[in-house]
Design a protein around this nucleic acid. Structure first.
Lengths: 247, 247
DNA sequence: GCCGCCCCTATTGTATACAGTAAGGCGTTA
DNA sequence: TAACGCCTTACTGTATACAATAGGGGCGGC
């Protein structure tokens, strides 16, 4: 059961604490007691404190002025902004990738992923497993985009944004899977993927940029849909951190 | 002499350690010994460790796989990428500000700053103090832009990028001050400021975006100039962290 | 003389002890 | 009965002690 037997206490604590927060075992606004975590995870206060500092930098917890930390709550606006920001960063990544005039060979992996996605989306009826595969391939596509941009600075910045789990490219796919028009949305998303690849292959930086930004708006749309239906919102990773303002 | 008598040990340690790194008292690649810092700053290891973790998240130090931290070194490419990223984020900020259709009243502060900058740049001969004033007003302009974007997520992301000191808007102004064409560059930069304000006033989001991106390229150009002249590069904040690849 | 192995030391990861402070509860008084 | 104040308690900030590990230096063998 112990996933990380070799990892240091600090790393294990960070991972487990992050999971506690993302799973909703700790509620937004709730103070994260160091001693409470010590009891739960069976480590001393020192690794817990380090993990809390890192999570604060990640943005999952907030520092209280009086000392200590609380689990952060995220509004619909926060999520929408994070999605927009991801779109902008992916736009920059796509643009850079395009303007590097990469060889056909350097793009073979990206082309393979787009090909796999094509095959997947072409199917009539999509199962739960298909959506899992889609999420995996989609993450891979977005990861490759970032890689092809060849910018550690950009990569780091993106990782920060993605540490908010509902900002990740696959965050709303499970929501979307429940919609009647789910397959059509995948068709559109995949058209974006193909077009982004095409733009990169042809060195069309601005086109790649705009396509990536538009692509992220699909997530934004799914967010809007989810907000109107709390049940669907629960399918989003880190759902427990979302606090909608009362209507 | 003690700037922060009331602040906690942790905060003081973070500020002082950051200063040690930025001043070059600790060289890039050099291991940051906890005990060494303890001796230098007269605090215990605990606040030092917290400060190191925070600085690692900021990107000023790197985690060694064996444990401990080293001061990071930044290449010319890193700096160029950070400047480009800042331009993209400021573009997003400007676009958001524009598309919010802000009232004339909400923009009065930004207009004042642009007015002050106008008056400053209009002068024939610019003194050192004038450049200091320019940096202050310029920072204020960029800060207001971020504020008007009204996005905590974006603000946080920008703060991360700006924690690399040579990515900040004013980083290369002191370099530029030494150039024969320094005043002309200021004239161009100020034209950008005016145009960005105009775009925001008129709700022209895309124009604001592109102007902000182009604006950041002035910093990029100054970087290129600085690289050809090590003496000028030393004027940049955090210069000691910059390691150019041998020609 | 050079290379390799072993031991020692320095440094970090981890745990815990101590002190200061803020918050909450209870009692008293108006 | 409600409000104010004091006291207690539990928490975090800080310091330090202990253990494990990695790296370096020295010694010995080839």
């Amino acid at each position: 059961m112990d996933d990380q037997p070799r990892a240091s206490q600090t790393v294990r604590t960070l991972l487990q604490l992050r999971e506690l927060i993302l799973n909703g075992d700790l509620s937004p606004g709730e103070r994260v007691s160091e001693l409470g975590i010590v009891e739960r995870l069976g480590v001393s206060r020192t690794p817990v404190r380090v993990a809390l500092v890192r999570l604060e930098e990640e943005g999952l917890v907030d520092c209280l002025p009086t000392g200590g930390f609380v689990v952060r709550a995220f509004s619909e606006t926060d999520i929408a902004d994070a999605i927009q920001l991801r779109g902008v960063l992916e736009g920059m990544a796509a643009q850079r990738a395009a303007e590097r005039r990469l060889s056909r060979d350097a793009l073979s992996e990206l082309r393979d992923v787009v090909g796999s996605l094509d095959a997947l989306v072409r199917q009539r009826d999509l199962t739960i497993d298909d959506f899992s595969d889609y999420i995996r391939l989609n993450d891979r596509f977005h990861g490759l985009l970032l890689h092809l941009a060849d910018s550690p600075v950009l990569k780091r910045s993106m990782e920060r944004v993605l540490s908010l789990p509902f900002a990740s490219p696959g965050a709303f796919v499970r929501v979307q899977a429940e919609l009647p028009e789910s397959r059509e949305i995948l068709v559109i998303a995949q058209e974006h993927h193909r077009a982004i690849l095409d733009a990169i292959e042809n060195g069309e930086g601005s086109r790649a940029d705009h396509l990536a930004r538009e692509h992220s708006r699909l997530a934004r749309r799914n967010l809007d849909i989810s907000v109107k239906n709390q049940r669907q919102l629960d399918r989003v990773p880190g759902a427990s951190l979302i606090r909608l303002r009362r209507a």
